[in-house]
Design a protein around this nucleic acid. Structure first.
Length: 1123
DNA sequence: GGACTGATAGTTTTT
DNA sequence: CTATCAGTCC
């Protein structure tokens, strides 16, 4: 069957689209236009998808029609001459913005989906990658190749077509955004792409000059943002009337199902020629080349159009024969009428004439293509017949479009018009305009003054320290092998680099075997990173040294020392639960709790971190009842832990220290074993950890420490930078090496940071850091409110990424000539003091379509079903707690209630049973507080648990998890809710772990894992603390106000200063400091003043800007930019 | 024991 | 503003 399809349109849920773009209007307009098949567009948008689901019904396979009742109502609005069937296919456009091979890429891709179910799966998949709610054309920081991968894995029938492949800003081959070939863009998956969309500004003829595209079918669509633009380009098919028909026709053009396209005259497209709209300069590619791409008015790079781009990639000359299907070029009927009637395309006269045409002649496409001039002239619209004839013959003149401005049409010269109107001739006159070649010469008007802020974008960051060049100091640090070495490594001086190189050198020169090296870091992330880097440098299959966090290493060593004694390390939730139990038990002895559970946890931690007795910590001495209660709780807590064989984090280190200090033999053997000990971030050691390092080394040991006292920001949990400064006393004769060359930040940022940290009252002497580049001033932006602050950040990001949608350019909002270096979302970080601040910023940015990664304290296994699974695992391995049991039974049909379990727990606590012992005893002894029936049900429950445990015990870990999912309701939960990400992270750990003990250790010791798909590029939002060790080209520090930095109530102002210092030095190129004049604080609106730390920065280093409190934000009214 | 009310305090966070 | 906890009532 023959049909015409427009497969790329948008709904009203996309930015800058007409409000009336709903399915009904599309249905009506498609008929008026003469289109039989429309892409739905925006199928990724939940709102639009809901509409699709509720209003459309499947007609042919993968073809959907408007609900018949609705359709008959709509038909009344369609002239009878135009009526016909309309089908929808599920399509969506994705805006991919990402970095590849060092350049920011921005391309748009059309996705075709065979049915609603697949679309739903697609949306669920994308939801994890980015925000699909805020825009019908979602912006994802996702590599186009990875998008294609997702599409291919979705369903064999789904496919992807790169959209309007030539436009400069957002396309596969775009001059400012793209690649030079399909293969570069899609890599290994390129063979799966079989079609490309040419876009308005190019036609098949131009495309065929590039032989790399020969293999592709070229399709054309309207990309309509309003119903009026529907079908300005379209595709002709003669194939099965179904989704599969379309796919087949495109994938196998040799079978003839695809018959070519209806094209817009490319010259009329917005990006045909080169130029600057703001400067009113339009140029042909040849002229642009003569000017070397520079605008003669503003002397900035010109926006290169599609023709230019085609010519630069073309390997066939113009006019050379080339393959391809027939196509015809059209001009929208309203444009023709506007020209004929000499008035605007949206004027009333044109609208009326248009309506009249449709009513008498039929659909627009039939008028443009088929209806004979005789019939057209019968309408009595002067010149219309002649104009349409000329369009069909290609006899019109178009001033080519450029830099976002449509080209303009000319059918008749004034003289000609007079003549034609005079004689109403039906035959072609000699001397009418030649076929299009474009009156594209440079058009110049008065230079327009444009303002731009960013005349000299900062140079890209200097040579990275990962290169093979080392500074002398780095070299010294890597090569000083004997005795204790202390390295003071300021921010960006290549700390990790130095550390890894040193380990590799130790191994390579044979000075130490892998087993003789112990390297400790502070975070799991740092340990993983170091392990990876060393593995990369050493090559595969080599033994690697023990590299881990202090806690992880202690665990391993304790395990080795004690053989297989089971050790379960409790995570924070468990500890709190246990303390709660302990406090409840203590309260029974007639005492009420004068403090909170977290407070108690803090005291316990503090005491353990100092390796002291409980009596040396806790509530102040004068509060006698509180102290009594505290001591009692502490004791009970210890007992509860001991009974079940639990350890907490601090116990790991403390136990190790106690063992080493008490057992000289053991200490000596470990000292013999670990000849080289390396400690990263030494300034963050707390007392117990310091004692541990001391106990593992002698004063003359080959102990290598590296760190930066100015970056000690964990004082609140016991870290003390003084251990760092004391190193030379503890280890006399230690070599001291200072790394002072920063590869990360420019001088301006280092200077400002240095001025801030110099304000510390610690009396330390500091040496200045040197940068490679001078850098530009720091921007200090003062805003009215926290919302305005977020909006200001968003605007800057939007501008630096170069606008995330066409709109930004098409409406002239962003100065396309004066933009700075292109960035992608992953280049930005927004830092703040408290988590609370992150929420608002993320909300504003997400709403504007900027993808964010909000670092949260919640971890992946905090989602109920992942947490449930972990509880089950622990229980089945005999390492469960009462807490695990309570949570686990929620996932089976248990007849035992939570309160029964509480009574059971109380009974166990009273008798000193752990869970396992308690479960055994409950089978034979009466449990106090439970009647016989309840106890029987509980015993039955325990038997069930036992049985499940027995059944799965001998299976490998993965099979065990599968079985658990099957035997409990966990499986349903994982199926129902989109927490596959959680399961995936778990699976990753399972892969990485040797055995279940390892896994459980990981689960309680390991840091948060991201819920986000790492393939999606996002702006990072995190606290200043979390930013430590990271770097970003562009850094925003939000809330630079008194009360936030330094935080109100902070005891150690120096630490707040260091924290700010850490934040400042994360920036590789640009640093923005933001303040709000007013901020909501605990529900109250507070006036704010600037952080005193900013006053310590030389004003000459700051560029201060105030953002006025204009009303926020006019989202849909202006549609100018994302804000 | 569970549902309600009112008072109160409220960083930062890795393991 | 909101989570938490203690106290109150049924």
């Amino acid at each position: 069957m023959k049909f015409i399809a427009d497969l790329h349109i948008h709904s009203r849920f996309s930015r800058a689209t007409s409000r009336n773009l709903d399915l009904e209007n599309l249905y009506i307009s498609a008929q008026c236009k003469g289109i039989q098949v429309l892409g739905t567009g925006d199928a990724t948008h939940p709102g639009w998808f809901d509409e699709i689901q509720s209003r459309l019904v499947e007609a042919e396979a993968g073809f959907y029609r408007l609900d018949p009742n609705q359709a008959s109502i709509c038909d009344r609005w369609v002239p009878e001459s135009c009526r016909g069937e309309v089908r929808f296919v599920l399509t969506a456009e994705i805006s991919n913005i990402y970095k590849k091979d060092g350049r920011t890429r921005k391309n748009h891709n059309l996705v075709f989906l065979p049915d609603l179910e697949t679309a739903q799966r697609f949306n669920r998949r994308l939801e994890k990658i980015g925000n699909i709610h805020s825009d019908g054309r979602p912006i994802l920081g996702l590599d186009a190749r990875d998008l294609l991968d997702i599409v291919l894995n979705l369903d064999a029938r789904a496919f992807l077509v790169p959209a309007h492949i030539w436009t400069p800003w957002f396309s596969m081959l775009g001059s400012r955004s793209g690649f030079d070939s399909l293969e570069q863009c899609f890599g290994d998956l390129a063979p799966h792409v079989f079609a490309a969309e040419t876009g308005l500004s190019s036609d098949p003829e131009m495309n065929r000059r590039v032989s790399g595209l020969d293999r592709l079918v070229l399709i054309s669509n309207s990309d309509a943002h309003s119903t009026a633009k529907l079908g300005r380009e379209a595709n002709c098919f003669d194939t099965d009337f179904s989704y599969e028909g379309i796919r087949e026709a495109l994938a196998h053009p040799e079978n003839g199902g695809f018959c070519g396209t209806l094209e817009f005259y490319p010259e009329e497209g917005k990006y045909h020629l080169d130029g600057h709209r703001q400067c009113a300069v339009r140029l042909t590619p040849a002229e642009t080349r003569k000017l070397e791409g520079i605008c003669p008015v503003c002397h900035r790079p010109l926006t290169l159009g599609v023709l230019h781009r085609v010519e630069s990639l073309a390997d066939r000359c113009q006019g050379q024969p080339r393959p391809g299907l027939p196509f015809s070029k059209l001009v929208p009927l309203t444009d023709i009428l506007a020209e004929v009637l000499q008035c605007g395309a949206v004027s009333k006269r044109v609208t009326e004439a248009y309506r009249r045409c449709l009513e008498s002649l039929g659909s627009e496409l039939s008028i443009l293509q088929e209806i004979s001039p005789d019939r057209i002239s019968s309408l009595d619209i002067p010149l219309l017949d002649e104009a349409i004839r000329r369009v069909r013959q290609g006899r019109l003149v178009i001033d080519g479009g450029f830099d976002g401005q449509f080209g303009t049409l000319h059918f008749f010269t004034p003289a000609e018009r007079r003549r034609l109107l005079g004689q109403q001739s039906l035959f072609v006159l000699p001397g009418s305009p030649a076929p299009v070649s474009g009156r594209g010469g440079p058009v110049r008007s008065e230079p327009i003054q444009t303002s731009w802020r960013d005349p000299s974008p900062a140079a890209p960051s200097a040579a990275n320290s990962a290169g093979s060049l080392m500074t002398d100091a780095q070299k010294a640090a890597v090569e000083a092998m004997k005795g204790p070495v202390m390295v003071v490594a300021g921010p960006g001086t290549g700390k990790t680099f130095t550390l890894t190189r040193r380990i590799v050198r130790l191994l390579e020169t044979g000075q130490a075997s892998a087993g003789q090296i112990l390297a400790v870091t502070f975070t799991q992330k740092a340990a993983d990173q170091m392990q990876r880097r060393i593995a990369d440098l050493m090559g595969k299959g080599r033994d690697l040294p023990l590299i881990g966090t202090l806690h992880g290493c202690c665990y391993r060593l304790l395990q080795q020392i004690d053989g297989d004694r089971p050790m379960t390390v409790l995570d924070e939730d468990h500890r709190l639960e246990l303390i709660r139990d302990a406090m409840t038990l203590a309260a029974q002895d007639d005492l009420s709790a004068p403090f909170s559970v977290p407070q108690m946890l803090g005291w316990i931690e503090a005491v353990k971190q100092r390796i002291q007795e409980p009596s040396s910590g806790g509530p102040p001495a004068h509060d006698v009842p509180a102290r009594r209660f505290y001591l009692r709780v502490f004791e009970i807590y210890r007992n509860l832990m001991a009974v079940q064989g639990f350890l907490d984090f601090d116990d790991l280190v403390a136990c190790m220290v106690v063992r080493l200090e008490a057992d000289a033999e053991l200490a000596a053997s470990l000292k013999r074993r670990f000849v080289h000990v390396l400690v990263d971030e030494y300034q963050d050691l707390n007392h117990a950890q310091y004692r541990l390092v001391r106990a593992l080394t002698e004063p003359g040991s080959h102990l290598f420490i590296i760190g930066d006292p100015d970056q000690c920001i964990y004082g609140f949990r016991g870290s003390d930078w003084r251990y760092f400064d004391r190193f030379s006393d503890d280890y006399p004769g230690a070599s001291v090496i200072r790394l002072q060359h920063s590869y990360r930040s420019p001088q301006s940022i280092l200077d400002a940071a240095g001025q801030v940290v110099a304000g510390c009252r610690d009396g330390r002497r500091r040496l200045p850091l040197k940068a490679t580049a001078p850098g530009r001033r720091l921007n200090l932006i003062r805003t009215e409110s926290e919302k305005a602050e977020a909006v200001a950040i968003g605007r800057i990001i939007e501008q630096m990424v170069g606008g995330s949608g066409f709109e930004a350019y098409d409406f002239g909002k962003v100065d396309s000539a004066g933009r700075g270096q292109e960035r992608s979302f992953a280049d930005f970080a927004i830092l703040y003091r408290t988590h609370r601040q992150g929420g608002m910023i993320a909300e504003v940015l997400e709403a504007a379509g900027i993808p964010c990664r909000l670092a949260s304290r919640r971890r992946i296994w905090d989602t109920p079903h992942v947490a449930g699974l972990v509880c089950w695992l622990r229980l089945c391995m005999g390492q469960g707690s009462f807490f695990d049991l309570e949570r686990a039974i929620a996932w089976i049909a248990a007849e035992t209630s939570g309160s029964d379990l509480k009574r059971f727990k109380k009974w166990c606590h009273a008798r000193g049973y752990g869970l396992a012992e308690g479960m055994r005893q409950a089978a034979r002894l009466p449990v106090q507080g439970l009647n016989a029936a309840r106890q029987h049900r509980m015993i039955a429950l325990f038997a069930d648990l036992e049985r499940i445990g027995d059944e799965i015990r001998d299976r490998p870990l993965e099979a065990r998890i599968d079985a658990l999912l099957e035997k409990t309701r966990l499986g349903e939960a994982f199926d129902a809710s989109p927490a596959e990400a959680g399961l995936a992270a778990l699976a990753e750990w399972i892969d990485a772990c040797r055995d279940e003990t390892d896994l459980l250790l990981h689960l309680s010791l390991s840091a948060d894992a991201d819920l986000y798909d790492p393939r999606g590029e996002r702006v990072a939002l995190m606290t200043l603390h979390a930013a430590k060790g990271l770097e970003f080209p562009v850094v925003f520090i939000a809330g630079c106000e008194d009360g936030l930095i330094p935080l109100i109530g902070a005891e150690d102002l120096d630490e707040e200063r260091r924290l700010f210092y850490v934040g400042l030095t994360r920036a590789g190129e640009r640093l923005f400091l933001l303040t709000a004049a007013r901020r909501m604080c605990y529900g109250r609106c507070e006036n704010r003043t600037m952080s005193p730390f900013i006053a310590d920065i030389d004003p000459g280093l700051l560029e201060i800007e105030s953002v006025a409190g204009r009303p926020l934000p006019l989202r849909r009214q202006t549609q100018m930019s994302l804000f």
